[in-house]
Nucleic acid binder design. Sequence first.
DNA 1: TGAGTTTGTGCCGCAACTAAACAAACTGCG
DNA 2: CGCAGTTTGTTTAGTTGCGGCACAAACTCA
Lengths: 404, 404
Amino acid sequence: MNGKATTTRTKLERGRSALGPALELVHTGRAPTRAVLTSELGVTRATAGAVAAELEALGLIRVDSSPGSAAGSQGRPSHRLSVLETGPVVLAAQVHADGFRAALVGLGGRIVATSPGCVAVMADPAQVLGEVVEAGAELLRASGLRCVGAGLAVPSAVAEPEGTALNPLHIAWPAGSPVRDIFAACVRRAGITGPAFTGNDVNLTALAEHRHGAGRGAQHLLCVATGHRGVGGALVLDGRLHSGSSGLALEVGHLTVNPEGRPCHCGGRGCLDVETDPLAFLTTARREPGPEESLLKQAGNLLRAEYDDPAVRQAAEELIDRLGLGLAGLVNILNPDRIILGGLHRDLLEADPERLRAVVADRSLWGRSGSVPILPCTLAHNSLVGAAELAWQPVLDDPLAALA
Amino acid sequence: MNGKATTTRTKLERGRSALGPALELVHTGRAPTRAVLTSELGVTRATAGAVAAELEALGLIRVDSSPGSAAGSQGRPSHRLSVLETGPVVLAAQVHADGFRAALVGLGGRIVATSPGCVAVMADPAQVLGEVVEAGAELLRASGLRCVGAGLAVPSAVAEPEGTALNPLHIAWPAGSPVRDIFAACVRRAGITGPAFTGNDVNLTALAEHRHGAGRGAQHLLCVATGHRGVGGALVLDGRLHSGSSGLALEVGHLTVNPEGRPCHCGGRGCLDVETDPLAFLTTARREPGPEESLLKQAGNLLRAEYDDPAVRQAAEELIDRLGLGLAGLVNILNPDRIILGGLHRDLLEADPERLRAVVADRSLWGRSGSVPILPCTLAHNSLVGAAELAWQPVLDDPLAALA
DNA sequence: TGAGTTTGTGCCGCAACTAAACAAACTGCG
DNA sequence: CGCAGTTTGTTTAGTTGCGGCACAAACTCA
């Protein structure tokens, strides 16, 4: 606060303007060589060369001058671009009903190391986050790599700009916990450098899948997934996560998908939330949920192992129809060009993809929208990778400033 | 097509990079003076001065060197910026169930002239669009102003990239009419210069209200409006219209708002579409729709003139409750920071704003989201102005290229 | 081996921008 | 009325990111 609060960016603070976009292209694998980097950026070869050299100098990417004979196209082969293996990493952390886990993630969504993963979650967020961050810090010390930030995925809507967890339902945290600040404090206390970010796990899954998984290349990507209880949604628009004006968008669990369905705590009945989550599946299939495993795993195992059982199959079809109705409603509102499904929804899709696609096509208004591709999530640890994306974002936006 | 299809923009084609943003600031009224233009653009005074001078030289804005004593702030008063009254215009056209209308619209959403407005719509889109464009061309000849483009608003979803009208329900056009191409052909035939664009009327209403009306300054603006039949929605995200990956987003008419409601042609029952449109209101209030006026006008008149009548009031409250349910669903999905309502929904809001806000707050999941401001549309001829925005967009994006 | 093709690099120049110093136009106070 | 203080417009010089161009390099194919 030095007198004048001028927002003017000085020349010195601005990096080469194409630096960020170029790094993002390499990061998402859309620039395998310097030649395609040139065309993707829409600049001259000279500029692309300078940009690639600068990213290499920053220790972020590697430029292979001798690709050792590439594919059989004619002309001089282009230099290969790849993420530098020994480059900086970010700390990614994830908390869910089954426990928590930390990881180091490099550019390109590459998981460098993961902690074993704890299986119990305490009721005190500060304790849980302290432990997971400490596990990450341990990985960091062991690796000897530079850390440029940290990201956390939580199974709850995260309100912006406060950074509070509004409904950490299936982890026993108090609603409204300031998770972003708690996480940031843990990160600082552990001596980890760089900014800390927190986001909803389904949002981060969508982000990860968009950049490195089944959502690659989609313009408007819709992701719907069940956690252990309830349904979450996320939307990536033109490459950016849309989390609404206060971080609460895509709370899709309360679309009506069965007018005669069971009552929901929201006041309605037959909501997507209570009609298509793991508990709904077990109940519909008339199975008693056991205490030994998470509902999600029980439901998934049942669906895969006993699909021949008429009761299981019928329950699956019922859930598929309800899910299809919900997706059709979302298609009418959001008009995505791709849908990816996670959790139990992913299992339902794989159990009978034709049925789900038919319901969505039938109940969405236009033929074109009805034929939206529906795919399963493909990435392992996708919300961890998504948490890492959050931490990488400043670097992708402005590499010079973020690494300074 | 000169051999190489290079996408590289040459230096000559690029204008001063801040030219577009600067024009947009003046256009939307966010840069009343050169001083705030400087700070909004985040550039030096020298640059802002050069940019303003260039826009003035292009004949787009006016720079008043002698403001004749401004407000009582100290220091040298800044030059006033305003759109040039005699600057170029665009041709805006609108077709709806009651007829069609043409207008000339300048920068800043200023309506320069309007045609009388025809009250009948023929079944042949080519004929209707031919007439409305001819009316616009006549206005143009009379004004002697330069025309830089044309925009059309139609009461139908417009599929992208084909530009076809998918459901021109309440105008008797064939579904799938290539309205964009027809309009463009009419525009060219009338000798009007500049590109031609076509969009859905509710989308364009939202765009117009965002830039010049009740949506100003909103980050994520949701607009819901009834036409003469049915319900339409639109979303403006970070200043850009979100029309989905194929132009079909925000088809919000088929959210379930009354599980026991009347059946809808979409296959469901109790859809927003059939529960909150003008016909639904008249029916619920047990009034026989007359043939002399449009349903929208009849419903609006009834609501305003006979709100004391218990049957009318009860019908209004029923519709408000249903609308609130629908809006709450959209709030949960989109998390907008402002909602504006048009058509009968606007009348319902004004009849009992408290009730509507209460329902939305009650049925949306989070308190914060529940307190979204809900406002009526304020702009006269908002879809005409929106159609004009479409035509102005290339100029706002790159003034030099668009006026060349 | 040489022609053709595609890519990397060095050099020049432009144009858009910043920075800095100065001039201009106002307010307010003595 | 005059002068200090404040804010804005303008001029000048200097920096720089990037396009354009020419040429070299590295490959394929006949």
